[in-house]
Amino acid sequence: QEPLTASMLAAAPPQEQKQMIGERLYPLIHAMHTSLAGKITGMLLEIDNSELLLLLESPESLRSKIEEAVAVLQAHQATESTHKSGTATF
């Protein structure tokens, strides 16, 4: 796939823009976190398109954002299990 530019994105209808970005993000995330790729991609797609284009252009920023998403998921799962068991499971 050729790199996604702001003009390519602007030329697509809004609902297709997220699809175009998601299709480029997913393989990059899948390479880092296979089992969570679908969830992490969904979480990142809630970011503004302009910021998502920056992420696609900067592997370093993308990596740190992916790690942030994993941390958010893990923290959420930890609180979930705490609620269920009533005790901290750290």
Partner: peptide, 26 residues
């Protein structure tokens, strides 16, 4: 590198490109 400040939500729906959806078993 640009710092992206948007917050991430665990409630976001999962996203799979065509052909990647693990929920479809061949």
């Amino acid at each position: 590198a640009p710092v992206i400040m948007s917050k991430l939500s665990v409630n976001a729906p999962e996203f799979y490109p065509p052909g990647y959806n693990p929920n479809f078993t061949d």
